[in-house]
Structure formats: C-alpha cells, structure tokens
Amino acid sequence: TGYYDVLGVKPDASDNELKKAYRKMALKFHPDKNPDGAEQFKQISQAYEVLSDEKKRQIYDQ
C-alpha cells in the first residue's frame, strides 16, 4: 500500500489536503482512542512525514 492510499488522498493532493487527511486519520487511529490502531497510526504518521516534506515527496514519487 502506498503512502497516498494510507492517507486516502490522490497523488496530486495539495499540502492542505494532505494535512486535513492526516489529521482525520490520526484522530481515528490514535492509540488513545483506538487501542488496536497503534500500527496503523504509525503508518499514517510515516506517510505524512514523507508526503508533507517536499524533498522526501519528490524522491518518493520517482
């Protein structure tokens, strides 16, 4: 599964769309709200870390 799929956004998503999707998913799977969501929360955080950084995103998109 790709990072875009993890966040539920298209590859041409804007920074604002990425942030909005990340916040929505992070709230849904945060371990405090969803004890079984810890692994998914890590994936969401990693996806956002890469896609929100312009240089990392360019490398990922290659």
Results as ranks from 00 to 15, higher is better:
24 K>H: 09
58 Q>N: 09
6 V>W: 07
17 E>W: 01
6 V>S: 04
11 P>T: 07
48 Y>T: 02
25 M>K: 07
32 D>W: 07
10 K>I: 03
3 Y>D: 00
25 M>D: 08
23 R>Y: 12
44 I>E: 02
7 L>G: 00
26 A>W: 15
61 D>M: 06
8 G>A: 04
45 S>V: 15
47 A>I: 07
41 F>L: 05
36 D>H: 11
21 A>Q: 04
28 K>G: 07
32 D>M: 10
62 Q>S: 11
17 E>F: 00
34 N>F: 08
15 D>C: 15
33 K>A: 10
21 A>D: 01
38 A>M: 09
58 Q>P: 08
21 A>G: 05
1 T>Q: 13
11 P>G: 06
5 D>Q: 11
20 K>W: 07
16 N>K: 13
38 A>I: 11
12 D>I: 04
58 Q>C: 12
58 Q>L: 12
32 D>A: 11
57 R>E: 01
50 V>A: 04
43 Q>W: 11
13 A>M: 00
21 A>N: 03
30 H>F: 05
8 G>M: 07
26 A>R: 13
42 K>F: 11
1 T>N: 11
4 Y>K: 01
59 I>K: 12
2 G>M: 11
35 P>Y: 04
14 S>I: 03
6 V>Q: 05
62 Q>A: 14
56 K>E: 04
16 N>I: 13
9 V>R: 00
28 K>P: 07
22 Y>W: 07
9 V>M: 02
41 F>T: 01
12 D>R: 03
17 E>T: 09
3 Y>C: 14
46 Q>T: 10
27 L>Q: 14
31 P>S: 08
53 D>I: 03
40 Q>M: 15
58 Q>R: 14
15 D>P: 15
36 D>G: 10
23 R>D: 15
35 P>L: 06
32 D>G: 08
30 H>D: 11
14 S>G: 07
9 V>Q: 00
28 K>C: 13
6 V>I: 15
10 K>Y: 07
11 P>M: 10
33 K>N: 14
14 S>A: 06
23 R>A: 14
11 P>L: 06
61 D>A: 04
29 F>L: 02
39 E>I: 08
41 F>A: 05
46 Q>N: 11
30 H>T: 04
49 E>A: 12
56 K>G: 06
48 Y>D: 02
56 K>Q: 10
21 A>R: 00
42 K>H: 11
60 Y>C: 06
16 N>L: 14
31 P>F: 06
49 E>Q: 09
29 F>A: 04
30 H>Q: 06
22 Y>K: 03
37 G>Y: 15
39 E>S: 08
17 E>G: 02
42 K>R: 13
60 Y>E: 03
45 S>F: 10
58 Q>D: 09
45 S>R: 14
62 Q>C: 12
49 E>W: 12
41 F>Q: 02
42 K>Q: 10
42 K>I: 11
19 K>R: 14
23 R>C: 15
62 Q>H: 11
54 E>L: 13
48 Y>V: 01
56 K>Y: 05
52 S>I: 13
2 G>K: 12
4 Y>R: 00
59 I>V: 12
1 T>M: 14
38 A>D: 08
24 K>W: 05
46 Q>F: 09
8 G>S: 02
53 D>E: 04
12 D>N: 11
3 Y>N: 05
1 T>F: 15
32 D>I: 08
52 S>N: 04
34 N>A: 04
25 M>L: 15
15 D>F: 15
61 D>N: 06
29 F>D: 02
27 L>D: 15
29 F>Y: 14
3 Y>P: 05
20 K>V: 14
14 S>M: 03
47 A>M: 03
50 V>G: 02
51 L>V: 04
32 D>N: 12
29 F>T: 03
24 K>D: 15
17 E>L: 03
36 D>M: 09
52 S>P: 02
47 A>P: 01
26 A>G: 06
11 P>Y: 08
61 D>F: 01
49 E>L: 08
51 L>G: 01
55 K>P: 04
22 Y>M: 06
36 D>V: 06
1 T>E: 10
36 D>P: 01
39 E>H: 06
27 L>P: 07
40 Q>R: 13
48 Y>I: 02
48 Y>M: 06
16 N>F: 14
51 L>K: 00
10 K>L: 10
25 M>C: 13
20 K>N: 13
1 T>A: 11
36 D>C: 11
53 D>A: 07
14 S>H: 03
43 Q>I: 14
47 A>N: 01
43 Q>H: 08
55 K>Y: 13
55 K>R: 14
59 I>Y: 09
62 Q>E: 11
20 K>L: 11
35 P>E: 04
46 Q>E: 13
16 N>M: 14
31 P>W: 02
59 I>D: 12
14 S>D: 11
38 A>V: 09
9 V>I: 10
58 Q>V: 11
59 I>L: 12
56 K>N: 07
57 R>L: 03
23 R>H: 14
51 L>M: 01
35 P>W: 03
6 V>K: 02
2 G>E: 09
54 E>Y: 13
10 K>A: 12
5 D>G: 10
2 G>A: 11
6 V>A: 03
55 K>H: 13
31 P>C: 09
25 M>W: 05
51 L>E: 02
44 I>D: 02
38 A>T: 06
62 Q>L: 12
10 K>H: 11
45 S>Q: 15
11 P>V: 08
27 L>F: 08
8 G>V: 02
40 Q>E: 08
18 L>D: 00
9 V>T: 05
7 L>T: 00
22 Y>E: 04
9 V>F: 00
20 K>C: 14
56 K>W: 05
45 S>T: 13
32 D>V: 06
40 Q>G: 06
37 G>P: 01
60 Y>F: 03
52 S>R: 10
49 E>V: 05
48 Y>S: 03
27 L>Y: 09
20 K>I: 15
13 A>R: 00
5 D>M: 08
24 K>N: 12
30 H>I: 05
51 L>H: 00
35 P>T: 04
17 E>R: 00
23 R>T: 13
59 I>F: 09
38 A>N: 07
23 R>Q: 15
51 L>S: 00
17 E>M: 05
30 H>M: 07
17 E>D: 12
17 E>Y: 01
4 Y>N: 01
45 S>W: 13
45 S>I: 14
23 R>K: 13
21 A>H: 03
27 L>C: 14
34 N>R: 05
24 K>I: 10
40 Q>A: 09
12 D>S: 10
24 K>E: 15
18 L>A: 01
57 R>Q: 04
43 Q>C: 13
38 A>H: 10
54 E>F: 14
35 P>K: 08
32 D>F: 06
55 K>Q: 09
47 A>R: 00
20 K>E: 15
22 Y>G: 04
33 K>W: 12
44 I>M: 00
43 Q>E: 11
7 L>R: 00
3 Y>F: 09
47 A>K: 01
